[in-house]
Every structure is written in structure tokens, then in C-alpha cells.
Amino acid sequence: MQLKQRLTALWLMWSLPVFAEINPQLVALNCVSCHQDHAAPERGIPLLVGLSAQTIQQDLLDFKYDRKSATLMPRIAKGFSDDELRVIAEYIAQH
């Protein structure tokens, strides 16, 4: 194999998981397993309804970088790149 081809193959192998696009719809479907889309009970998990994309994105980034304390969300937000969190926030705000 030519060096160039070999490098391309290597680059593809390395880069595929990193560049694999997430499906924001699927992630958002998982969000609402806890953040239900109607009235939460008292002292329940906060709702996402009515929040702007900007607010959701900022909260997710604050959870990810431990700027905002919470029980579970810091553990979730660390699973996504900043860009993925933006796409997810936009999807949630629109639906």
C-alpha cells in the first residue's frame, strides 16, 4: 500500500468515532426519560419545557466543566463534546 493510502486509512480508523455524528433526536428522547414533558412533582427533576437553546446549552456546559453543582448532570454532560451539547440543546428547545 502507498504511504499516502496507508495514512489515509489510519486517519479514517482514528477519526471515525470522533467524527461520528450524534443524532440529537435520540439523545433528546433519552433526556425526557427523566425530564418529563409535563408537570413535575414537587421536589422533582426539573422540566426542560420553555427553556431557550442558549439556556440549555449554557447549563450543559456548566455541568460538563463543573461550574454548576448538580446530582447527576455533570456525569452526563461529560459524555458529549461542546459542539454536541450545542446541537442537543438546540434540538430540545425546538421540540
Partner: peptide, 19 residues
């Protein structure tokens, strides 16, 4: 945190059932 997580345990249960 444990008190909040106990509340969230009940809330998450109800939410998952509804979902």
C-alpha cells in the same frame, strides 16, 4: 445530595413510567 437523590429517584421512576 442523598436527600435530593432520594427525591429524584421517585421523580425519575414516575417519569420513566410516563415516558
Amino acid at each position: 445530595l442523598p436527600i435530593l437523590e432520594a427525591d429524584y429517584a421517585r421523580s425519575a421512576y414516575q417519569s420513566l413510567v410516563n415516558n
